[in-house]
Simulated scan of single mutants.
Amino acid sequence: MEPGSTRPGISLRALAPNAVTAVALCTGLSGAWFALQGRWENAVAAIVVAGVLDAMDGRIARMLKGESRFGAELDSLSDVIAFGATPALIIYMWVMQDMPRFGWTISVFFVLCAALRLARFNARIDTEHQPHKSAGFNTGVPSPPGAGLALLPMIIWFETGAEWVRDYRFIAPWLLIVAVLMISNVATYSWSSLKVRPSFRFMAIAAVGLFGATLVAAPWVALIAASVVYALLIPLSMISYSKVKRARKAAAIAA
């Protein structure tokens, strides 16, 4: 090869984010393996670790300028498995298998909604007109938070031992609600749409530090708090997007 010519092959810069995505997929799927052994806490922990890795891979890709269409497709497949199929299997083995007739149907419906959400995302990836995305919002509940909300009753059971959360009559409608939220057109907050006023920045940093300390000392309490806060933010995000939508409409009329 001549001096100064480009060496063939794929750079590590492009492989790194895809490798993180692959690890997230394998870690999330391992949750089903733990569930088969009745190791429920390990099963949920595997989903949590997969969620952390899923949050990292996109940022690593942007930081290394290693984004690719292949990476986007792999990320979607990973999300369907780690945050769609695996949580549904865990919940089914934990409770839903005791539900007469419709336990498996509802579990499969959750997986279907996760797949439909990601298919919609991929179909729109090159679309210029995306009102929610351009305003910094997500359309519907993303798959990782959706998996967290689906597993919330199990996490409450870990911490409190309350048997009412381990009743399929409660779990079934809860799972259906979360599944519908994933494929809905509801505007939900993304990281870019969450703004902190300068006067509250130290309180925000302190709150994050408190969450980190709680995550170490009482991880299930921290995860319950995070899931509840996210659920409470959904109606607030709808209100915020409505304000953005009205402001855009007013600007268009004025123009």
Rank of each mutant, 00 (worst) to 15 (best):
M1F: 13
E2R: 09
S5T: 15
S5W: 13
S5Y: 14
T6V: 13
I10T: 14
I10S: 14
R13V: 03
A16L: 15
N18I: 03
A19Q: 11
V20E: 09
V23I: 08
V23C: 05
A24I: 01
C26S: 14
S30C: 08
S30E: 08
G31M: 02
G31K: 00
W33G: 10
A35S: 05
A35M: 09
Q37F: 11
W40I: 01
I47G: 09
V49F: 03
A50I: 06
V52C: 13
A55L: 06
A55G: 13
D57Q: 02
D57C: 05
I60Y: 00
M63R: 15
L64Y: 01
L64V: 12
K65Q: 15
K65T: 15
G71R: 02
D75L: 02
L77G: 01
I81T: 04
P87M: 00
I91L: 07
I91F: 03
W94C: 02
W94V: 07
Q97L: 08
D98P: 14
D98M: 13
P100N: 06
P100W: 12
G103W: 08
W104D: 08
T105Q: 14
T105M: 11
I106L: 07
S107T: 10
S107I: 00
F109E: 11
A115M: 04
A119N: 11
R120D: 12
A123M: 11
R124S: 12
R124M: 14
D126N: 14
T127F: 07
E128M: 14
Q130C: 08
S134G: 09
G136D: 06
P142H: 03
S143Y: 01
G148A: 11
L151I: 00
P153D: 03
P153V: 02
I155W: 01
I155E: 04
G161H: 00
V165P: 08
R166N: 12
D167V: 07
R169Q: 12
F170P: 15
I171W: 08
A172Q: 06
P173I: 09
W174M: 09
I177R: 05
A179G: 07
A179W: 08
T188E: 13
T188H: 10
Y189P: 13
Y189A: 02
Y189C: 04
S190K: 05
S193L: 00
S193W: 05
L194F: 01
P198F: 08
S199H: 15
F200A: 06
R201F: 14
R201T: 10
F202G: 03
A207L: 14
A207M: 14
V208P: 04
V208M: 10
L210Q: 10
L210G: 10
V216P: 04
A217M: 07
A222D: 04
L223N: 00
A226K: 02
V228L: 09
Y230N: 01
I234E: 13
S237N: 09
I239S: 11
S240P: 03
S242G: 15
K243L: 10
R248P: 07
R248N: 14
A251M: 09
